[in-house]
C-alpha cells in the first residue's frame, strides 16, 4: 500500500479526499539545526567571557602584545574557503559524480587540516616565545578556552568528513547519501561561521585593532 495515493475520509466533513502525504520538515535537518543552535549558545558564552575580560588582566602577556594577526588571516582564508569546496562536494555527490566528489572533499580536508596546523603553530609560538599558558592570566584562559574549543570542533568536523571520504573511497557511498553528507556540511559551515566571530573577537577586538 503506497501511502502517497491513499484516499482518506476527512473527519471534519466526511468527504473523501485523495491527499498527498503532508509536508513535514526533514528530521535530519531539524536535528542538525538544533545542534547548531545549542552550539551557538555554547560558543557565545566563551566569546562573551573573552570580550568581557579584555583589558582586565593584572599582568601580561595580552592579545595586543602576543598575537600576530598576519598568519592567522592566511589560515582563516583556508578555513573559510573550505566552506565553498564542501558545497561543491555535496553537489557532485548528488549528481553522482564520484570522482569530483572525492576531489572536492579531499580539498576540504586539506584546507581544514591546514587551519588546524596553523593553530598548532600559533600555540607553539605563544607557549615558547611568550610563555602564555591557560594558567598564565585571564587572556591565556579565555584565549585558549575559546580558540581551543573552536579547534576541537574543527577536528571533530574533519573526522566526520574524513570518514565520509574514506567510505567513498571504499565504495560505500551512494548518491542517495548526499542528504546525509549535506547535513555534515551544515555543521562544517557552522564551524566556519563561528570562526568569523572568534576571529573578530580575538584578533580584532582582542588585539586592539578594533
Amino acid at each position: 500500500m503506497a501511502a502517497t495515493s491513499d484516499a482518506t475520509v476527512d473527519p471534519t466533513d466526511g468527504a473523501t479526499r485523495r491527499d498527498a502525504v503532508e509536508w513535514r520538515p526533514s528530521r535530519g535537518k531539524v536535528g542538525v539545526a538544533s545542534l547548531i543552535a545549542m552550539e551557538s549558545f555554547f560558543f557565545g558564552t566563551f566569546i562573551v567571557a573573552f570580550l568581557f575580560y579584555i583589558g582586565k588582566d593584572v599582568h601580561g602577556p595580552t592579545g595586543a602584545t602576543a598575537l600576530d594577526v598576519g598568519p592567522v588571516i592566511v589560515w582563516s582564508i583556508c578555513l573559510l574557503s573550505s566552506s565553498a569546496t564542501v558545497v561543491a562536494a555535496v553537489k557532485a555527490l548528488a549528481r553522482g559524480a564520484k570522482a569530483a566528489f572525492e576531489f572536492w572533499m579531499g580539498a576540504t580536508l586539506l584546507l581544514g587540516g591546514a587551519f588546524v596546523y596553523g593553530t598548532a603553530v600559533e600555540w607553539r609560538g605563544l607557549m615558547l616565545d611568550h610563555e602564555l599558558f591557560i594558567s598564565t592570566n585571564l587572556f591565556g584562559s579565555t584565549y585558549y578556552g575559546l580558540v581551543g574549543f573552536h579547534a576541537f570542533h574543527v577536528v571533530l568536523g574533519l573526522l566526520a568528513l574524513g570518514m565520509i571520504w574514506t567510505l567513498s573511497k571504499l565504495g560505500h557511498l551512494r548518491a542517495v547519501d548526499a542528504e546525509k553528507v549535506e547535513l555534515v556540511s551544515w555543521y562544517w559551515h557552522f564551524v566556519d561561521v563561528v570562526w568569523i566571530f572568534v576571529f573578530t573577537s580575538v584578533y580584532l577586538f582582542g588585539t586592539g585593532i578594533l
Binding site: A2, A3, T4, V21, W23, R24, R27, V176
Partner: peptide, 14 residues
C-alpha cells in the same frame, strides 16, 4: 529502503 517516493513519507510509517 529510501526511494524518491519514500523520502517524503513519515519516518517509521511501516
Amino acid at each position: 529502503m529510501a526511494t524518491p517516493d519514500d523520502a517524503r513519507e513519515t519516518p517509521y510509517a511501516r
